[in-house]
Design a protein around this nucleic acid. Sequence first.
DNA 1: ACCTGAACACCGTTCAAGT
DNA 2: ACCTGAACACCGTTCAAGT
Lengths: 228, 228
Amino acid sequence: MSKLSREAVIRRALALADAEGVDAVTVRRLAGELDVTPMALYWHFKNKEELLTAVADHLLAGVARPAEFGGPWQTRLRTMVRTLIETMREHPSLPLLFHVAEKERIGSFTRATDIALGLLAEAGFSLEEGYWVSSYLLNGAITLVNGRPDCPGGIRPEEAEERRKQHRLALEALPEQEYPYISAYAETMRAAPDVERYFSFGLDLLMCGVEAMAARIAPASATPNNTA
Amino acid sequence: MSKLSREAVIRRALALADAEGVDAVTVRRLAGELDVTPMALYWHFKNKEELLTAVADHLLAGVARPAEFGGPWQTRLRTMVRTLIETMREHPSLPLLFHVAEKERIGSFTRATDIALGLLAEAGFSLEEGYWVSSYLLNGAITLVNGRPDCPGGIRPEEAEERRKQHRLALEALPEQEYPYISAYAETMRAAPDVERYFSFGLDLLMCGVEAMAARIAPASATPNNTA
DNA sequence: ACCTGAACACCGTTCAAGT
DNA sequence: ACCTGAACACCGTTCAAGT
């Protein structure tokens, strides 16, 4: 009974990353959890980067095959971005994982990019511009989830609350004359963060940029149903 | 003659990061370049993170005190973001540096945020929304510079060109029926990348999002000179 | 084909000791 | 105040060897 397989390693790595952060995923630690020698992993993966890339690929699979499609490009693109954000919200380690994995080598990322490029071509962007916009949306979604106020960087909620308090105290200690807006902002940090508002505002912000640029480039077809 | 000082360490660390990437900045390597024992650095810095945060702080100083100010909030905010982008373009290591440094602890970042919050309050955003927008702009600028086609991630131009070619070949190898847009995009990669267009498009994209959201929130004061 | 053991060349950091 | 020496507890990875 060969216990080890690519699949098993990926699942364990993801569980470990979600539980203790992506920094906890070391070759030795992961091997220990799988009751195996560190070097055993090198038979299944060329190196650590390929391992983490495989984890990212596994997670992005859901984004690459979007379910409910239809309607103008704006809503379809928005659905993709929302799906991406929701996937990452379920796996808080994913944002940091993207920083170490090479995005070009993630198969499901390539798949998702092709779909997005199609939608953006419909919006009037050139292929190159579409690629830039795709990357803007992907990275925007990543940093949005990574900066979520309840568990930034995928840390544990208790630690996040403590950090938030320390951050507030640090901001409140600043001279109010020199930092008038920061001081006022620190006041608003006394309340618990509204995570849903944070995400809906962030999604709107991201999509607003794309739609405004599309309207600038192709004003005539900005709304999808006026071509004839 | 005490050769070592906080300033000297920061300068060396920045030079090393720019020359060989931020990964090359290890405590031991940096100490070696300064002709000193690794532990000597621990007298001037609590740990490595504080060291890198100091480097980031040093670099962001120029953004925190913007020069040519005036005009409506849109152009002033755009100037800040452009300055930030230009600063990072001069130091390609900076984007990755932000990922390891804790942004909240960077003094010049706090200063820049206060200025931005003021401009965004003028635009009609609440303090909390303003903070989200600031973070959106900072991270957007970081990923924009980090993804520049001529030296993504701050790698050397020759290596970037080789990687770009490999990336193109990988995309061209994909089945054209399944990846129609990616395949067409790969064709455009044969030409040398237009870096200036990349950056101006990216800046427009970032600012478009903010301006469109501002117009949605406070349509009456979307243009600055119609309040009376 | 799949895994182990030992070793290599690194890390960041602590702590007592020097001057 | 400022720096050194030795040591600790880790890393990722290679390479020959086992089954």
